[in-house]
Amino acid sequence: DETGKELVLVLYDYQEKSPREVTIKKGDILTLLNSTNKDWWKIEVNDRQGFVPAAYLKKLD
């Protein structure tokens, strides 16, 4: 059920640097789980959840 889920576009590649982070690729469109922290957003990638720098993402309307 995708209702109410926010999507984000990945602006730059990011390689995870800790187990709490996930790797993302430029151009991916992913589900945003939590954006309350202005610097690190929690997203879902391939059934994995983790954090990436918010500056690497853009919210889609």
Rank of each mutant, 00 (worst) to 15 (best):
P53R: 03
V22M: 07
E21L: 04
E6G: 12
T3V: 13
Y14P: 01
T36I: 08
I24T: 03
E2I: 15
D1L: 14
Y14W: 08
L7A: 06
I43P: 00
L11S: 02
T23V: 03
K5D: 08
D1R: 08
V10R: 00
E16S: 14
D39P: 02
S18D: 11
V22C: 09
V10K: 00
E44V: 10
L32S: 02
Y12G: 07
K38Y: 07
I43R: 00
D28G: 05
E44H: 06
L7T: 09
N46M: 15
D1W: 10
L57V: 08
A55T: 11
K42T: 06
S18A: 11
R20D: 12
K17L: 09
E6M: 14
E16P: 10
P19K: 09
S18P: 04
L32Y: 01
L60K: 03
D1T: 14
L11A: 03
E16D: 05
R48G: 04
V8L: 04
K26Q: 10
Y56N: 13
G4R: 15
Q49S: 11
D47F: 10
T3D: 11
E16R: 10
Q15S: 11
F51P: 00
W40L: 04
D13V: 02
I43F: 00
A55V: 11
K38D: 09
W41M: 02
D28I: 04
S35L: 04
T36K: 12
T3E: 13
V10H: 00
P19Y: 08
N37H: 12
Q49N: 08
T31L: 15
D61Y: 09
V22W: 03
S35F: 06
L33G: 01
E2C: 14
R48Y: 05
L33S: 03
N46L: 13
R20P: 06
A54V: 06
E2D: 14
G27E: 02
K42L: 15
A55Q: 13
L11H: 02
L60H: 05
V52P: 01
K58M: 12
L57D: 01
L9V: 10
D61N: 14
W40Q: 03
L32I: 05
I29Q: 04
Y56K: 06
Y14K: 01
R20T: 11
L9I: 11
S35G: 11
L57T: 02
N37E: 11
L7N: 05
T31M: 12
L60R: 03
L60Q: 05
K58L: 12
T3S: 12
L30R: 13
I29A: 02
D28Y: 07
T3H: 14
D61I: 11
K26C: 08
Q15D: 12
Q49L: 06
L30S: 03
S18W: 07
L30K: 03
T31G: 08
R20K: 10
T31N: 10
V8S: 01
K25P: 01
L32E: 00
E44N: 05
V22H: 03
Q49R: 11
L57C: 07
E2V: 14
V52Y: 01
S18I: 05
E2R: 09
S35M: 08
Y14R: 05
E44C: 11
S18G: 11
L11E: 04
I29T: 06
L9Q: 07
E6T: 15
